[in-house]
Amino acid sequence: MIKPDAALKSISFATFLGVCLELAGDELTAHLPFAPHLIGNPMIPALHGGVIGAFMEITAMAQLKRDGNFDHIPKPIDVNIQYLRSGKPLDTYAQAVVKRIGRTISSVEVSAWQETRQSPIATLQAHFLMD
């Protein structure tokens, strides 16, 4: 496992969450190791929905940077998150697919999972401003 994107390190918030990027061939997978500060509901316990959302946003940005060869950080215009399952206190993974890279706007879809990729815990669609 390697961490291909040193640029992610410059994002303090990615470090705060503990996100790392893993590259297998040309396939990028974002990995969010479980940590106690990511819990939203301590009684269940479940990951905070905002953590899952933020993790998928970072995944989208990383994929976009890679596909589009950008050296700056793309800004989200709008983000749509669907929560499918409760986030357990486990490691979470996510992969993004860039649907379109335009001169001004790009469109990305992300899926996040824990135990099996076939049972995603959340999905995200987002538009990013490219300038």
Partner: peptide, 10 residues
């Protein structure tokens, strides 16, 4: 980070 705003909104 936008992700922080996301969590706060959620």
């Amino acid at each position: 980070a936008s992700g922080v705003v996301t969590a706060l909104l959620d």
